[in-house]
Nucleic acid binder design. Structure first.
Lengths: 138, 138
DNA sequence: TTTTAAATATAATAATATTGCATTTAAAAT
DNA sequence: ATTTTAAATGCAATATTATTATATTTAAAA
């Protein structure tokens, strides 16, 4: 199943409407090779059906909440989730030069079990990104 | 050795001048319990010797470069480095509610060895944060 | 087709970050 | 102590990113 179809399925399951702007953003993210910000996405939307950037912010907020995109901190932007990857500790490798990123799963990640119990009572989420140069940029 | 003294030592070693604004920012960071942004720090600077926020941005840039502060992405701000912690995989536990954070070292972290060689040629740095509720907020 | 809550566009504003340039200052050199 | 000088800062302007309120539109259920 494609990223777009799977995303639409998830949105419907979570009772969100499938709108023009949401489809358009999904299409941009489906083709993206690097993390995109709201303004980046605005630039990639076809000129004949422009979408207000405020809407894009709101669309991204929903997409992140339902788990179809992931925020990349190394490059301040969003990438589509790789639904192929199964449960585990999800991390991202991000090229420090061009931003191309790849999701990967660490099977024996001890991030959540080794954490200092003194501070964190219950783990909610985590960010795990490693940056370096990709083959093209090296 | 205190955070301030150790930081000054590092700045001198790296040939940066020890200025009033830099001392003031170090003092704010030394007392901080949560990650602070440039504007947060501006608010904590004594009113009698105000520091321009542009300067604070530049000070923080230098501090991060020489490794005396660490950027926290979960709460968009900076915290002082914990110099007690030795080499290893440095991660942060951040309270999702109040922002209190704690640096910790993962001795057997496989983040850098398990990464997909296809994308990342040589690792430069990484971000590793886990968020949850601290004892106070839980 | 009608209804209705959800979603969007628009305009305004707020918050965050950056740049260029004149002035000041820490610290080295005299 | 003074002078010198590159580095650092302050200021003003601007750019970028993000948010809010409200009227209008629309997807999808009735």
């Amino acid at each position: 199943m494609t990223f777009i179809d799977e995303s639409i399925q998830i949105l419907k399951r979570e009772s969100y409407k499938i709108t023009g702007p949401r489809r358009a953003v999904l299409e941009v993210l489906a083709e993206a090779e690097i993390p995109l910000s709201a303004y980046d996405i605005e630039e990639h939307i076809p000129e004949n059906i422009p979408i207000n950037v405020v809407t894009i912010y709101r669309v991204l907020e929903v997409f992140e909440k339902v788990g179809i995109i992931h925020k990349i901190h190394t490059k301040e932007g969003y990438v589509r989730c790789d639904f192929e990857k199964q449960k585990g500790c999800h991390s991202f490798a991000v090229c420090s030069e061009c931003g191309r990123s790849k999701e990967f799963v660490q099977k024996e990640c001890k991030l959540e079990t080794q954490l200092p119990q003194k501070l964190v009572y219950k783990s909610l989420s985590h960010i795990s990104e490693i940056s370096g140069l990709c083959k093209q940029c090296a």
